[in-house]
Design a protein around this nucleic acid. Structure first.
Length: 224
DNA sequence: CCCTAGATGCAT
DNA sequence: TGCATCTAGGGG
């Protein structure tokens, strides 16, 4: 990953798209406040931003270039970009692509496979186990990840099996996974304008998985 | 400044 | 359908 060098502008666009399906079935484990929760990722969305002069993703936080808010997206791959949605929800991205290029995969859904009791306490509204991490805000809450204190946390363990804590939290992404039977692809959720149409089919999910969030077209999307 | 809209969730 | 409530960006 660190040796990756884009040969063309199009290759930069590919980065997040290549990584996206690879995250399906992968596991993200967190240790927050001494409590451990593991989620099997079932739904992701790709976002990127080339900054000034390049083609940009109109649905991406990085579309206008680097800002204090989206700085993590421009940093090291494998770190977590945690942002606040509507002033309430902490949503989690896995940063993708080389440092200096904005890219990330929004984790939109997952199955809690460890620490369901802990996740249940964090998410009392969840009636069914499948709702514990179904949706980006829910997933962040189930894992105990919060904006802004956990933004930029490194989810790659590296040589150490369990890296040092940061802000009372540890996150680890395990890309080794069981083969995924069938992957579906379609437009991203809740993105307005052209990005809400089939022009950007950058949402990937495990076909038929009950922990995949409900599709909701963005404002300005084509009605039917 | 003020307004709007946003990669949302949940009660009504 | 409306609200919770924080942020960035665009327009006056």
């Amino acid at each position: 990953m660190t040796d990756y060098r884009p040969a063309a502008r199009e290759d930069l666009l590919d980065v997040a798209l290549v990584v996206a399906p690879r995250l399906l079935g992968a596991r993200l484990t967190t240790l927050v406040d001494g409590q451990r929760v593991c989620v099997r990722i079932t739904e992701v969305e790709a976002y990127h931003g080339l900054g000034t002069g390049g083609v940009s993703d109109p649905g991406s936080h990085a579309r206008m270039g680097q800002t204090p808010r989206n700085a993590t997206m421009w940093g090291e791959p494998g770190h977590l970009y945690v942002y606040l949605s509507h002033g309430i929800h902490s949503c989690v991205n896995v940063v993708a692509g080389p440092a200096g290029v904005a890219g990330g995969l929004l984790l939109r859904g997952g199955e809690v496979i460890e620490g369901a009791d802990v996740a249940g306490v964090r998410r009392p509204a969840a009636r069914l186990p499948r709702d514990l991490a179904r949706g980006p805000g829910r997933l962040g809450q189930a894992l105990g990840l919060r904006h802004p204190i956990h933004d930029g946390i490194d989810a790659i363990a590296g040589a150490a099996p369990w890296p040092p804590e940061r802000a009372g939290a540890v996150a680890r992404l395990d890309l080794a996974r069981e083969p995924v039977r069938d992957v579906s692809r379609g437009p991203r959720v809740g993105v307005a304008g052209v990005a809400g149409t089939s022009a950007f089919p950058w949402r990937f999910w495990i076909t038929g998985d009950p922990t995949v969030s409900v599709f909701r077209p963005g404002r300005g999307a084509v009605e039917s």
